[in-house]
């Protein structure tokens, strides 16, 4: 803990003194090429988003964004170094240049976009804050949580939403705030709190990974906030921002156009659809505009698949996390995913 705080302090000071100044002198891309590696800030372990297995191999939706970027920029999805960051440390780590991007189920809000010296790129997942409670309590709605103690993790948007909801509905919720997600999990599963609150996707992930018996816990239907999660980069390097943003859009657009990792080669050989050809680098050179080569998106898709594949692999109903596509379906399917046009 002290070590973490020290890192945080050192990072802040380093950031402020300009010790690490060259790291973001506007040329993140050059830096990345020079070290032949993307440094990606991820969580300390949220199943489905970013979690390391026993061999230290990182997987998850957020991890796939890093892999797609590494494939697009450096030619191989494995050229990534993952830096696990606790919630309170993550912004400082990005500000100070310790990581190239934050791909760490992070909510974009007005104040984060404006006051932290960071920029949002694109929304990867539309989420909302929810509550998990033990099934044996037989609760049907979050409105029934009067005077409840709620376990939460600090350094997130969770605490404020919780207070807002509690005040609006006069629930007198009492938060118990932990710095590390592990401690919050342990306290909730030991029965310290009546409810656990964080993003609904996070709740599903925690339930799947940490509960002794996931069936003993239910997620209440109310979502009390909007939590658009997505990768963030430092302000002031528009070139890098564009690469991250359009790579995410590219993954979404590929799903809309029916481009998958398993039909990639076939489409490459046979497709005459100009939109598909553009995505695969056979039409206009989109890569050049981004400072990349023609086949940037082809490589990204080849290594992680399109958005739908990523979702089904890490978060979908066949995974332990078990999320429905819901709002995270394509706009053509009744969801909110609408990639700005790649042309």
């Amino acid at each position: 803990m002290i070590a973490h705080r020290l890192t945080q302090l050192t990072l802040t000071i380093a950031a402020c003194l300009g010790v690490a100044a060259p790291a973001w002198a506007g040329k993140t891309l050059e830096q990345i090429r020079q070290r032949d590696q993307i440094v990606c800030g991820v969580s300390t372990g949220v199943a489905g988003f970013s979690a390391a297995d026993s061999q230290g191999k990182w997987t998850g939706m957020d991890v796939d964004v890093c892999r797609a970027l590494a494939a697009a920029v450096l030619g191989s999805p494995d050229k990534v170094r993952y830096v696990p960051l606790a919630a309170p440390q993550r912004f400082t780590a990005l500000q100070s240049g310790e990581v190239d991007l934050l791909s760490r189920n992070t909510t974009v809000t007005l104040s984060r976009d404006t006051t932290l010296g960071l920029s949002m790129t694109a929304v990867l997942l539309y989420d909302g804050q929810g509550f998990m409670v033990p099934a044996k309590l037989n609760l049907k709605s979050a409105r029934q949580l009067k005077d409840a103690t709620v376990c939460v993790q600090s350094g997130t948007t969770t605490e404020k939403n919780l207070s807002d909801y509690s005040r609006t509905h006069k629930l007198n919720l009492k938060p118990v705030v932990f710095e590390k997600i592990d401690a919050a999990n342990a306290a909730y599963f030991a029965g310290r709190c009546k409810a656990y609150s964080t993003d609904a996707s996070g709740l599903a992930s925690i339930r799947s990974r940490e509960a002794k018996n996931p069936k003993e816990h239910i997620i209440l239907p109310e979502l009390i906030s909007k939590e658009p999660l997505g990768p963030m980069v430092r302000k002031g390097d528009d070139e890098w921002l564009a690469i991250v943003r359009w790579t995410v859009y590219g993954l979404i657009e590929a799903e809309e156009q029916g481009v998958r990792s398993d039909n990639l080669q076939k489409l490459l050989a046979e497709s005459t659809d100009p939109v598909v050809m553009r995505l695969l680098g056979k039409g206009d050179d989109l890569g050049k505009a981004l400072g990349l080569d023609k086949e940037w998106l082809l490589r990204a898709l080849g290594s992680v698949g399109n958005y739908g594949e990523m979702f089904e692999r890490h978060l979908g109903e066949k995974t332990p996390v078990g999320l429905k596509r819901g709002a995270n379906n394509l706009w053509t399917q009744g969801g909110l995913l609408y990639a700005l046009p790649l042309r």
Binding site: S111, L116, G155
Partner: peptide, 9 residues
């Protein structure tokens, strides 16, 4: 202070 840091930057 941790929470404040996060809310206010």
């Amino acid at each position: 202070a941790n929470t404040t840091m996060n809310q206010t930057g």
